[in-house]
C-alpha cells in the first residue's frame, strides 16, 4: 500500500510539472463584465452583445454632435440629456428605438410643437444625425457597463488617522519601513485599496497559500493546498511533491489560512478607516 501510494505520488509529481504554476482563477463575473479580452474596446463590444444593446454608436459623429446638443438641446433636456425642464432623452423610447438617426432625424425636423418642443428643421441632416449619435453615445455610456472605467480619486481620507489605524492594527505582522516600504509606489490606488485589505495569494507557492496538515493511515503530510473540496485534497509539499488524498473517515485534514487576519479585517473594517488607511499607505512611496 505504501509503495502504491509513493508510486502514485511520483506519477502525480510528473503530471504536476505541467502545472508548475497553478493557473490563476478566472476573474469572477468575467463574462458579465464582458471580459473576453481585446482590452477596453473588446470589453465594450462583448458586453454590448451579451446585453443585446444593439448597434454601436458612431463615436466620431457623436463628438461632432456634442457641441450641437449643448447649444440646441441642453437648455431643456439637461447637460447630459438626463432631463431638465424637458424629459430625459437617454431614457426616451424615441431615442432608444433609433439606431443611427433613421427615426430621430425626421422626428427632430418636426419636433413636438403641441408639447413645446420646437422643430430643428433649420439644422442640416448631418447635424441632426450627429446629435442623435451623441444621444446614442450618452445611452451607451450608461447602459454598456463594459465601457465603465473607475477614474475616481479615492485618496480623500485622513492620512494621520490612517497611520494611527495601521499602527494600532497592523504592526504585529507588518512594518512601514519593512515590508510595507514603497507600497504606495507599487500599486495604483484602486489596487492598493483592494490589496492591503486582502493581499493577492501570489505566487501560488508562496507564503500566502493555504497550508494543510493531512493525517492518514500512511502518515502525516504537510504542504500548500492546491485543491480541496469535501471529498478530496491535493497538497504540494516543500519538495514539490504533489499528494492527492481521498477525504475518507480515516483521513484528517487541518487547513490553515495565513491570511486569516486579513479575512477578519475585511469582516470588521469600516468605510472611513478603509479610506484613511489607503490614503496613508499611498504616501509610502
Amino acid at each position: 500500500m505504501r509503495r502504491l501510494l509513493l508510486l502514485s505520488a511520483g506519477l502525480l509529481m510528473a503530471a504536476g510539472a505541467a502545472w508548475a504554476a497553478d493557473p490563476p482563477p478566472p476573474p469572477e463575473g468575467a463574462a458579465a463584465q464582458g471580459g473576453r479580452g481585446g482590452g477596453a474596446a473588446g470589453r465594450a463590444q462583448s458586453t454590448r452583445e451579451f446585453l443585446g444593446l444593439g448597434v454601436e454608436p458612431d463615436a466620431v459623429a457623436a463628438a461632432r454632435g456634442k457641441p450641437l446638443y449643448e447649444a440646441q438641446c441642453a437648455a431643456c433636456h439637461g447637460a447630459t440629456a438626463r432631463g431638465g425642464m424637458g424629459p430625459s432623452l437617454i431614457h426616451s423610447s424615441v431615442v432608444l428605438d433609433d439606431d443611427h438617426g433613421e427615426k430621430l432625424t425626421p422626428f427632430l425636423k418636426t419636433g413636438r410643437p403641441e408639447r413645446g418642443m420646437p422643430s430643428f428643421g433649420t439644422l442640416s441632416d448631418r447635424d441632426l444625425t450627429d446629435v442623435t449619435e451623441y444621444l446614442h453615445h450618452e445611452v451607451e455610456s450608461v447602459a454598456n457597463r463594459g465601457t465603465y472605467e473607475n477614474t475616481n480619486n479615492i485618496l480623500v481620507g485622513d492620512k494621520k488617522k490612517g497611520a494611527a489605524f495601521v499602527q494600532r492594527n497592523c504592526t504585529t505582522c507588518h512594518s512601514v519601513t519593512g515590508d510595507l516600504k514603497g507600497i504606495g509606489a507599487k500599486y495604483r490606488p484602486l489596487d492598493l485599496q483592494r490589496n492591503w485589505i486582502f493581499p493577492p495569494r501570489d505566487p501560488a507557492d508562496g507564503p500566502r497559500a493555504f497550508q494543510a496538515v493531512v493525517t492518514s493511515p500512511q502518515g502525516r503530510f504537510e504542504g500548500r493546498v492546491r485543491q480541496v473540496d469535501d471529498f478530496r485534497i491535493v497538497i504540494v509539499d516543500a519538495a514539490g511533491a504533489v499528494r492527492p488524498f481521498a477525504r475518507t473517515k480515516a483521513v484528517k485534514v487541518e487547513i490553515k489560512d495565513p491570511l486569516a487576519a486579513h479575512r477578519e479585517l475585511a469582516r470588521t473594517l469600516k468605510d472611513q478607516d478603509m479610506s484613511n488607511v489607503t490614503t496613508y499607505l499611498e504616501t509610502l512611496k
Partner: peptide
C-alpha cells in the same frame, strides 16, 4: 443612470 457604479469581485 444605469449601473452607475461597480461591485465586486470579492475581497479575498
Amino acid at each position: 443612470a444605469g449601473y452607475a457604479g461597480t461591485g465586486g469581485p470579492s475581497v479575498g
